[in-house]
């Protein structure tokens, strides 16, 4: 399971304030904690911490500040191209681009951008009509993403299709619909692309966020999910994820399987 640590996001109060104060230590500490907890990538998002015109500069500062403390690969997270490019310019290790829509023009531009930067690419199954609310439209857009990657010679092991998890509190049928789409897409290509989800979205505006997150993560994994943007500092979430890996025969059982998984993830 590939975990993209979500905590370096300006939407969190501590991170938002650190961005405004240009305080690198807060970011470095959160970066290290997430890496130690098993994050494979660190998501970096300015969020709403600064005004739009200041976002490219804030993103560049974040990337530099985080890299002073860790060499873990970063996932540059922005819907705005100029912010994305400002982050990519500063990255040292092959990053992840988070994200493009499946809208053809943007998709081909971002695939090219990923190739330029030796980056992984998250592609959302959305287009000009927004987030699809059924299985058919999601699978159709995932098909378009796979076709575009294939035509551009973009390697599938670098491609992460995000089928979009919607809040259970707002659209209760959506989490199940996403699972159906996930299951249907398992045979889409061989070798297959990755399937990723922005996990915390599913529990937005609920009071049992951690429980909902980890339950949904396990359900998604059973249907073929192999990557998640999530909070690795949520220990119960990580325990559930590790246990699901075990039950899916992706890890070898030992009595200390939780600590063994964590030891395997520790960066050398």
């Amino acid at each position: 399971m590939i975990i993209v640590g979500e905590r370096l996001n300006g939407q969190f109060d501590d991170v938002g304030k650190a961005i405004q104060d240009r305080n690198p230590e807060v970011l470095q500490k959160l970066a290290q904690e997430q890496v130690d907890a098993g994050a494979d990538y660190l998501d970096v998002s300015v969020g709403t911490a600064v005004a739009s015109r200041d976002k490219p500069e804030a993103m560049a500062w974040m990337v530099e500040a985080i890299q002073e403390g860790t060499d873990a690969p970063l996932a540059i997270d922005s819907p705005v191209e100029s912010v994305m490019r400002a982050g990519l310019e500063k990255v040292k290790n092959p990053p992840m681009i988070n994200s493009t829509s499946a809208e053809p023009e943007q998709l081909s531009k971002y695939i090219e951008m990923a190739q330029e930067h030796d980056a992984a690419l998250v592609a959302l199954t959305t287009d000009q009509d927004g987030v699809p609310n059924d299985v058919a439209k999601r699978t159709e857009l995932a098909g378009n993403i796979v076709m575009a990657a294939m035509e551009a010679g973009f390697p599938f092991d670098q491609l992460y299709i995000d089928l979009i998890a919607l809040p259970v509190g707002a659209a209760q049928q959506q989490p199940g619909i996403m699972l159906d789409a996930l299951q249907q897409l398992q045979g889409i290509a061989n070798p297959p692309p990755h399937f990723i989800v922005g996990l915390s979205n599913v529990s937005q505006s609920t009071v049992k966020r951690s429980l909902i997150n980890r339950t949904y993560l396990v359900m998604c994994m059973a249907n073929g999910l192999d990557a998640a943007i999530a909070d690795p500092l949520d220990e119960k979430l990580m325990d559930a994820m590790i246990t699901a890996e075990l039950l899916l025969n992706r890890q070898i059982y030992s009595d200390s399987f939780l600590s063994a998984y964590r030891a395997s993830k520790r960066r050398t």
Partner: peptide
């Protein structure tokens, strides 16, 4: 036993 093999490695490294 592959599970015990892994467990011994963990115990020894611990």
């Amino acid at each position: 036993d592959i599970n015990i093999c892994k467990q011994v490695n963990i115990l020894v490294t611990d």
